[in-house]
Design a binder for these strands. Structure first.
Length: 563
RNA sequence: CGGGGCGUAGCGCAGCCUGGCUAGCGCACCUGCCUUGGGAGCAGGGGGUCGGAGGUUCGAAUCCUCUCGCCCCGACCA
């Protein structure tokens, strides 16, 4: 491909409204353009990258027996109503009506439609297992699109769905996907990890996410360097650093107008880890009191797993329900209210509100002074101990690049996707669903691999294998050599981009580094006089000069080296 | 949805507070000359509903009201 013929609108300056590195570089290097918030156009270079990622996805999906199909993006409402998600999903779903006023939505995901198909076609255990997948556009009216291509309202997703007769089959397909995902992300040159995750509203009880570490990510994971335990902080278990039990004497103390942990802590000259933080929340099943140590925070998701949907109580509600102003709440003496306490409070002696205006109380002990349901409901922090091996946890920011869910029978039961087993009994199909976002792979690759000059693509997903850079297009020798090398490299089935523009050398070098093709072949007049061509590695910036006839061999060597 | 910021040429910005000549600068773009190993130089040139609507005023990019869009933080996130 010739640079002069290809649409590669590079930008010298970054558009002001791009923040994330991948966003800035994709815009500057001419990979994408923004149409509106969360809507992106993929330009020729960007689309080539997605193509190469898709090719890897397809190979690895086919290798575990998945079959590619394609489903509509426009979905009739009835199917989503049958699974209940038409109502449970809020503004995130794009909804519309056809000319006959029939309700439709744009697909945010395809569990419903895949399951509908299974319900029509799968009859017998002999039809199972099946894995169907597609690489298809999804639409979600995101509350806040952000970070360029990382969180958009329209995006392409590789989504696969497994259908099994039993749990063992699901487990096999789940593991097959996990392994395929490892191969995919490795091939795409990403640093990544597999972590336990919250299945959320997908239902089912088991899921993992694949995470690429990057400061641009919006998720956080806790990782144990000791035993390898890793989980999304939404559910990561951890043991907060233990406090010394200083055996506070039980006494009520006057704490006028000291409401927050910080205020009381300062007033009593006692560290926040010696306090119990009591937070009243309103759940669908009434109020509940959540207790964590004073230096910890309640994790809403973790609490949701215990008590379901909830929101913080308002000040007036606290007074009405507990009979005391927020700020002086303690865990003692409440009836008819659920109390959920963080596990770390089982040990130790604490200070808490006295349930009496302007008073706190010292010497509070679990079981002696209050009882509660014990769960890990605090936010895991850097330095907390791993629940499995005790090593210090690390907290890392990550980009979610893929996920795998065990769905069980949630969708098959709702949509009556059933089969007859060996005994002639009708049973719902057991399902799993598995997603990967190709654009996120591309963005994560850029986030993880770039320098001040631009993108550094892994070879596997670069838009081209080699960029040929004839420095002076007015020099007939340069042009002739470039054309010759272009033919030779193309004959090796390499994808070659030749910068044949009438531009000065500096411009070509800058654009080449920006665009990030892993290997640069530079044809300069002076080198050429000595029969030499320069081959430069985008990653290491190492350049070697070789004889013209050795160029192809050297390039092929480079391409075999991992990147 | 709450908080903050920003909309002036393709990109980056100045001008706005304190209204007043033809709305300006850098880069990019076009023509010519020149140049060809890290975003050259000289000369000439094109490009603007100042996001939109309404208002105040003799006069609005500038002041007021409404509105649309984009970005960031938070909430949310199959």
């Amino acid at each position: 491909m010739r640079f002069s013929k290809m649409f590669i609108p590079t930008l010298r300056e970054a558009p002001a409204d791009a923040e994330a590195v991948s966003h800035v570089l994709m815009l500057r290097a001419g990979y994408v353009r923004q149409l509106a918030a969360g809507l992106y156009i993929f330009l020729p270079l960007g689309w080539r990258v997605l193509d190469r990622i898709d090719a890897i996805l397809k190979e690895e999906m086919e290798s575990i027996g998945a079959q590619e199909i394609s489903m509509p993006i426009l979905h009739p409402a009835e199917i989503w109503q049958q699974t209940g998600r038409w109502d449970t999903i809020g503004g995130e779903m794009f909804r519309l009506k056809d000319r006959n006023e029939r309700d439709f939505c744009l697909g945010m995901t395809h569990e419903e439609i895949m399951t509908w198909l299974a319900s029509k076609e799968i009859r017998s255990y002999r039809d199972l297992p099946q894995i169907w997948y597609q690489i298809q556009t999804k639409l979600r009216d995101e509350a806040r699109p952000k970070s360029g291509v990382l969180r958009t309202r329209e995006f392409i997703m590789k989504d696969s769905y497994s259908f099994d007769a039993d749990e063992e089959g699901l487990e096999r397909n789940y593991q097959a996907h996990a392994e395929a995902y490892h191969r995919i992300f490795n091939r795409c040159g990403l640093r990544f990890m597999q972590v336990e995750s919250d299945p959320g509203m997908m239902g089912g009880g088991y899921s993992h996410e694949f995470m690429a570490p990057s400061p641009a990510g919006e998720d956080q994971v806790a990782v144990c360097p000791g035993c390898g335990y890793s989980a999304n902080v939404e559910l990561a278990l951890s043991v907060p650093v233990k406090t010394q039990d200083i055996g506070l004497p039980g006494e009520e103390v006057h704490t006028p107008d000291k409401r927050t942990i910080t205020e009381v802590s300062r007033f009593l000259k006692l560290g926040p880890e010696y306090f119990i933080k009591s937070v009243l929340v309103m759940s669908d099943n009434g109020p509940a009191l959540a207790l964590v140590r004073g230096d910890q925070e309640v994790h809403e998701k973790k609490l949701s797993i215990v008590i379901g949907r909830h929101r913080p109580a308002q000040k007036a509600e606290v007074k009405e329900i507990l009979g005391v102003e927020a700020g002086f709440i303690g865990p003692m003496g409440h009836r008819n209210i659920r109390i959920i306490a963080d596990t770390c409070l089982k040990e130790g002696t604490y200070v808490s509100g006295a349930n009496r205006q302007h008073y706190h109380i010292k010497g509070i002990k679990a079981e002696q002074d209050f009882t509660a349901e014990w769960h890990d409901i605090h936010i895991a922090k850097q330095g907390d101990a791993c629940v499995k091996c005790g090593a210090e946890l690390l907290i890392e920011r990550v980009i979610e690049i893929g996920n795998i869910f065990k769905l069980g029978t949630k969708y098959s039961a709702a949509l009556k996707a059933v089969f007859l087993d060996e005994h002639g009994d009708e049973r719902p199909v057991i399902m799993g669903s598995y997603g990967i976002g190709p654009a996120r792979i591309a963005a994560a690759a850029i986030e993880q691999r770039h320098d001040k000059d631009g993108i550094i693509w892994p070879r596997s997903i670069a838009p081209f294998d080699v960029e040929l850079i004839p420095l002076n297009m007015n020099d007939p020798g340069t042009v002739e050599t470039a054309e010759q090398l272009y033919r030779l490299l193309a004959a090796e089935r390499l994808e070659v981009l030749m910068d044949d523009r009438e531009e000065r050398a500096g411009v070509k070098f800058k654009d080449a580094d920006l665009i990030g093709i892993p290997t640069q072949v530079i044809i300069g007049e002076k080198n050429l006089k000595n029969g030499l061509i320069e081959i430069k590695d985008r990653t290491t910036r190492e350049a070697v000069s070789v004889k013209i006839e050795e160029v192809v061999g050297k390039v092929m060597d480079l391409i075999k080296t991992p990147s």
